[in-house]
């Protein structure tokens, strides 16, 4: 699984990639944490279970990231490890993280929501899955 953030004029793009769709989704989630702080500083101490379903994989990615945004906002947590499984447009996951520690995490931004901007979930000809969109900060 790999992840990266990419430039958008006003906000931040998040992108995950991997051998499976689930790995790409986990990577996109890690990239979203990176839009806030250094994921390496977030310890995987507490688990939150997440489930979502959507009519297609694009919307499933937006739903997945927005479910994480909701958990971050309501539990004041950051996440760094994502155990994801996806079957026929249904996602089940456990997100691991810890409560926000402003001094240690130094959060640069708060993600308001995952958008449909630059949204793409694709399998490349070489078999690699890519999952990306822009998040509003």
């Amino acid at each position: 699984m790999k992840w990266e953030t990419f430039a958008h004029e006003a906000d931040i793009g998040v992108r995950g990639s991997g051998a499976t769709l689930a790995e790409a989704f986990a990577g996109a989630a890690t990239a979203m944490t990176a839009a806030i702080c250094d994921p390496a500083q977030v310890m995987a101490r507490e688990a939150v279970r997440i489930e979502c379903a959507a009519p297609d994989y694009d919307i499933l990615l937006v739903d997945w990231l927005n479910a994480l945004v909701y958990e971050m906002a309501t539990h004041h947590m950051l996440f760094s490890r994502f155990d994801v499984s996806i079957e026929s447009h249904r996602l089940q996951a456990v997100a691991w993280g810890e409560p926000v520690d402003v001094v240690r995490h130094r959060p640069a931004a708060e993600v308001k929501g995952a958008s449909f901007c630059e949204l793409a979930v694709q399998r490349r000809p070489d078999g690699l899955w890519i999952a990306q969109c822009v998040v509003d900060v």
Binding site: I59, V62, D63, N66, V69, K112, G113, A114, S115, F116
Partner: peptide, 29 residues
């Protein structure tokens, strides 16, 4: 957070409902 979640909720609902309303979106956003 309230406004952000309203945006999230309705953006998704409108994306899914647009075809039935006869709206072709040049950009889902």
């Amino acid at each position: 957070g309230l406004g952000h979640q309203i945006g999230t909720d309705y953006l998704r609902e409108m994306v899914v409902a647009a075809p039935a309303a006869g709206i072709t979106l040049p950009d889902r956003e």
